[in-house]
Amino acid sequence: MFKVTPTAAEQVAKAAKQGGTEGFSLRLAAVQKPDGSIDYRMGFDEIGEDDIRFTSEGVDIVMAPEFVPLLDTAVMDFVTLDDGNQHFIFLNPKDPTYKPPSDA
């Protein structure tokens, strides 16, 4: 199932507090582009009637059932990239652009 790293969970909590969206769930969505790569979307939202709901690292997550096949093996992390900027990233073996993290 989809997982959130502890670092990402901490950042989600900070974003919810800063944005005044504490108490809302983190909604995830994914769309497969024509080249096969996956476009990820997220934001805070209320729970819908048909949503899949679960918790990872204390983050309440919801997604529409149609997104589960693209997201079920993914991990969301929060990292500092080579340019020094921090971003949420999705590590997803189902994405053809996926590269496993290196220990280097």
Rank of each mutant, 00 (worst) to 15 (best):
M1D: 14
T5W: 08
T5K: 06
A9Y: 14
E10W: 06
Q11Y: 05
Q11L: 02
A13M: 09
K14V: 15
K14H: 12
A15C: 06
A16L: 06
Q18A: 13
Q18L: 14
G19A: 14
G19I: 10
G20E: 15
G20I: 13
T21Y: 10
T21V: 14
T21N: 09
S25W: 11
S25K: 00
L28Q: 02
A29K: 10
A30E: 10
D35I: 03
I38Y: 14
D39W: 15
G43I: 12
G43Q: 12
F44E: 11
F44R: 07
F44V: 05
D45K: 00
E49W: 06
E49L: 06
D50N: 13
D51P: 02
T55A: 07
S56D: 14
S56G: 02
E57D: 12
E57Q: 15
G58V: 15
G58S: 10
A64W: 14
E66K: 10
V68Q: 07
L71I: 01
A74Q: 12
V75C: 02
D77H: 01
D77R: 01
F78D: 10
V79G: 03
V79M: 00
L81Q: 07
L81M: 06
D82W: 12
D82H: 10
G84L: 02
N85S: 10
N85M: 08
H87N: 13
F88H: 13
F90D: 09
L91M: 13
L91N: 09
L91Y: 12
N92K: 01
N92G: 03
K94I: 02
T97H: 14
T97G: 04
Y98S: 05
Y98M: 07
Y98G: 04
S102P: 05
D103H: 03
D103T: 04
A104Q: 05
